[in-house]
Design a protein around this nucleic acid. Structure first.
Ligand code: SF4
Ligand code: SF4
Lengths: 151, 151
DNA sequence: ATTAAAGATGCATTATGGATGTAGGTTATG
DNA sequence: CATAACCTACATCCATAATGCATCTTTAAT
């Protein structure tokens, strides 16, 4: 019962982008795009794994990815538009938390448990739905400092 | 992100005991104790795995186990006293749902995410705390029938 | 055009931990 | 003492997450 690192990595990437982009002055020099390598250097992660998460975030339209030289990626929406429940549900996959088929459980027709757990799961996500990427950027300054020094 | 089968097995065992004991007339013939084999026959599970769960439930004082010939186990409390949050927390282990150390995450000092997820987790368990084993026995008759035929 | 730098993609491999198996020990009944 | 039950400590298997590797495609700079 634990979130996958995959999911957390996705959130780290979003936090990284949010902190960085929020700090950029509004002049035309938007700075370089963030690259997979930047994330890996900062958090000391596997390039291949982050690769897949970035790709996934791109397919979810949470970030915009650009191929080719000087490519990279950036947030595709305002941080306030990125809800945590959506991110976690998508990256984690939202299978039921309790598996009654495969193999089939004989108690299923008379079981109250699966419903209770399923509703509890929804409460968890409902709570997450109150937060957006913005809420993860409360300490943006400190994040920026960490990210810049942890290269 | 899924409960362990181990945890579900524990709940099945409790449901089995609850359904069976609730049906017993109050005369002295309490019937035989339930044995690990009975559980395995009913749910088609591994004896070894159920063995461990039963032992665990015993250590938690949710069931009383008796060794030796004619041994077995039975509920140690009334079904209404067995709260689901307790059972699941204990069987599942209540580690944090997101692991920030091991390996250490540089964002930790400025991260808001772990707290949010931790509070969501508590909401999940708070919800489960509203229910007891009794709530899983709503369809006791049907459960009994299933358990008796599924030998 | 050429080259280099970036993500995209598919497959292989490793690591982790849950699930299961084996063997024997301990306890209680009769 | 023999048997039937749970107890305990391992060992092994297996599913899947995590990671690695190779290659392709796209794009920008030169
Ligand atoms: S006991 Fe209930 S929740 Fe558990 S597997 Fe069977 S049907 Fe599903
Ligand atoms: S990003 Fe936040 S939640 Fe995720 S590991 Fe780092 S500190 Fe923990």
């Amino acid at each position: 019962m634990q979130l996958k690192k995959y999911t957390d990595y996705g959130l780290r990437i979003l936090m990284y982008l949010g902190a960085k982009e929020g700090a950029q002055t509004t002049d035309k020099e938007q700075g370089q795009l963030t690259r997979i390598r930047d994330i890996c250097d900062t958090f000391d992660l596997s390039v291949n794994h982050v690769n897949k998460v970035v790709h996934h975030l791109g397919r979810l339209n949470l970030i915009e990815t650009r191929r080719g030289k000087n490519g990279g990626f950036l947030l595709a929406k305002a941080p306030g538009e990125i809800r945590l429940d959506f991110v976690i549900r998508q990256l984690e996959g939202d299978e039921p938390w309790i598996e009654c088929h495969n193999p089939y459980c004989v108690a299923l027709p008379a079981c109250e448990l699966n419903g209770i757990v399923a509703r509890g799961k929804e409460l968890f996500y409902d709570y997450l739905a109150q937060f957006t990427l913005n809420d993860l950027l409360k300490k943006q300054g400190q994040l920026l400092q960490i990210f810049s020094t942890a290269s």
